[in-house]
Design a protein around this nucleic acid. Structure first.
Lengths: 192, 192
DNA sequence: AAAACCATGTAAGCTGTTACATGATTTC
DNA sequence: GAAATCATGTAACAGCTTACATGGTTTT
C-alpha cells in the first residue's frame, strides 16, 4: 500500500489565507489569529515555515524574498498562492463535509467554518451545499442527544454522576439548536 | 531544562472513564464513543493500549487479566483506577479552565465538557467555578465578535469575501449565546 | 462464504509543541 | 535597561493516524 500523504486542514488554512492576501510566514500567523483564530487552532511558527516550504515544493505556493526599504527590519519571504494552489483549495472546499459518526461535533464545525470562510473561492452553490449537509448532521445529532436525555432523565437520581452527564448532553443540544438556527439564516443570506 | 511530561487531555478522558467503571482497552473505546464521543475526538486502539500501559507504570491505574468463562472470546485485560489516579484526576478537573487568547472556542468547550462530565468526582463548587469561568470567557468572546461585525457590516459589499467571513462570525456569536444560556441554566441546576 | 465483531497490540510516519538560536528595533 | 515585536528557522520530543499482524466467533 502506498503511504498517502494525508492532506491536513492546516494546509488549507494556510492556502486559504494566501488566497486572500500574499503573506510572510510571520504575517500568516498574525492573520490566522485575527481572523479564523476564534475557531481554528493556533499555528506555531515551527509548523508554518516547514509547511510553507512543503507547499512550495508541491508548486501550490511560490515565494520571493523582500528586503525592508529602510533596511531596519529583517528580510521577509512573501508567499503567494499559485494557480495549482487555487485549484487544490477549490477542490477541498468543494469536497463534502466529513460527518462520519466517529467525528465529533466541534471538528465538524471547524471544517465547515473554514470552508464557509473560503466561500468566495467557489461557486456560491458549493457553500450552500456545505451548509445544507451541516444542517442535516445537526438535525440527526439533536435527535440522538434527545434520545440520551430521554434515557437519562428517569434515572437521574440513581447515580450522582447522572446530573453532570445530563449537563454535557444539554450543552450538545444547545449547540445543535444554535447551529441549525445559524444554518437557516446563512442559507437565506447567502442564497440571495 | 527538564522535559516536562505534558499531561494531555486523552489521559484524563481515559482516567475519567475508568473512574466510572473498570474497563478493558476495547470497552474503553466503545464507552468513549457512546458517552463523550459527540464532543471528544475518537481514540484509536493504537493510542489506548500504550496509554493504559503508561498510566499503569505511573500507578494511576492497575490491571488484571480476565478470561472468558466459556473460553470463546479472547482474554481481556481489565483496568481500574487507583487512589493515585483518582487524586490526579481530581486535580485536573479542579484546575481552572485554560482560556488563553490563543486557544479557540471549541477546544475550550471540549475541556469544559470533559470536566463537567467528571463533575461527580469533585466538590460541586469546582464544577460551578468551571462553568463560571467558561461563562466569563464566552461573554468576552461575544463582545469581540460583535466588534468584528460592527467593523465588517459597513464594508460588506466592498469585497465578495466579506459576506462569507461575516457568516463565520455569526456562527461564533450563536455558539457564544447558546453557551451562555446553557451556563446560566447549568449553574442553576447544579447549584441546588 | 463474506463481513463484522471481539480483543490486543506493533511499526512507520506524519502532526504538532516546546525549547533553543539569532539579532536588530521598538516600546515601556 | 527590560520587555516586546519583527523575522525565520532547527532539534527534540510528544501526540496521533494508518497500516499491519493475529485469530477466533458471530452475524448476514
Amino acid at each position: 500500500m502506498p503511504r498517502v500523504a494525508k492532506e491536513t486542514k492546516d494546509r488549507y488554512a494556510i492556502l486559504g489565507m494566501l488566497s486572500h492576501h500574499e503573506l510572510s510566514g510571520y504575517d500568516l500567523r498574525e492573520r490566522i489569529m485575527n481572523t479564523i483564530g476564534f475557531f481554528w487552532p493556533d499555528l506555531k511558527y515551527s509548523r508554518i515555515y516547514p509547511t510553507l516550504k512543503k507547499l512550495e515544493a508541491e508548486y501550490l505556493v511560490s515565494s520571493k524574498k523582500v528586503s525592508d526599504p529602510d533596511d531596519k527590519r529583517p528580510d521577509k519571504r512573501i508567499y503567494k498562492i499559485t494557480a495549482g494552489g487555487t485549484d487544490a483549495l477549490e477542490e477541498w472546499v468543494s469536497e463534502p463535509l466529513d460527518v462520519t459518526s466517529s467525528i465529533n461535533m466541534f471538528s465538524i464545525m471547524q471544517e465547515l467554518l473554514l470552508k464557509i470562510y473560503l466561500g468566495g473561492q467557489v461557486e456560491s452553490e458549493v457553500s450552500l451545499q456545505n451548509i445544507e449537509k451541516f444542517k442535516q448532521y445537526q438535525r440527526t445529532s439533536k435527535k440522538i442527544l434527545e434520545g440520551f436525555v430521554d434515557n437519562l432523565e428517569p434515572i437521574i437520581d440513581s447515580d450522582p454522576d447522572h446530573k453532570y452527564i445530563l449537563q454535557t448532553i444539554k450543552m450538545g443540544l444547545e449547540v445543535s439548536k444554535a447551529s441549525m438556527k445559524w444554518a437557516n439564516n446563512a442559507l437565506k443570506e447567502l442564497g440571495e
